[in-house]
Design a binder for these strands. Sequence first.
DNA 1: TATATCGGTATACTTTTGGAAACCGGTATG
DNA 2: CATACCGGTTTCCAAAAGTATACCGATATA
Lengths: 126, 126
Amino acid sequence: METVEHDKRKCPSHLSTGECTKMLLPVKDALDILSGKWKLQIILSLTFGKKRFKQIQREIPGLTPKMLSKQLKELEINELAERRVYDTSPVTVEYELTLYGRTLRPLIEELHKWGTKHRKRIIARK
Amino acid sequence: METVEHDKRKCPSHLSTGECTKMLLPVKDALDILSGKWKLQIILSLTFGKKRFKQIQREIPGLTPKMLSKQLKELEINELAERRVYDTSPVTVEYELTLYGRTLRPLIEELHKWGTKHRKRIIARK
DNA sequence: TATATCGGTATACTTTTGGAAACCGGTATG
DNA sequence: CATACCGGTTTCCAAAAGTATACCGATATA
């Protein structure tokens, strides 16, 4: 009879296998939101107010429309940004961070704090 | 005569171009330390004490020696983990998080907090 | 002597990510 | 009429990240 025991070889021994992935998954989710070549810059750009598509693209040198469109869609799916279409002619499209999107702020600040110390310690020294 | 003015089309208007990248680089550094498929799990594994190479590999299913070795080297370069070789026979190698490496903890906790809320809001709903 | 473990490395491959360029309909501008 | 801007999409291509597999010398174990 096979018992569903914790395999101590597969996770740090203090954590059950379940606890281990339960710890991991949310951190990875958060990381996924922020990592990639453009996400951070796009989010940063939007923290300063709503922007139009081309306007964002102009602010971020090297960003192609393909990438911008892809990242904006992801932000939308995650409810971090909103897309608003105005019935002007020609049609106007604006993107804006949601309130929820703004809850990323403290997290980004933490990353900034740690990253700044790290730069001083490692990067400069190299 | 060309003045070296801030190009308002390239960065959010409140920030000078310099301020913009100065904000960005440290955040990216921090992100780089944590992103990738295995880094987080390896760091997590090491937070529970020193480990030997194969021991880490066994704890993390799917992790190949090539990847493990690569990630451990990066942790070393960034002074987040230390590699100790003991002159036993056969030779024993142990990896341990440095004190500095442990300063990642609060950052990871922030990611965990935000990620947990995000899971509740988005992932579950999908 | 045969097999296994340790701490990796080497090579070749696939998958994921991102980039370059062209293109689209609609509208405005000269 | 030609050209340009807006908000994208499509296609193809290159680079980066990760995987599979085999192998290495040294030592221990049956």
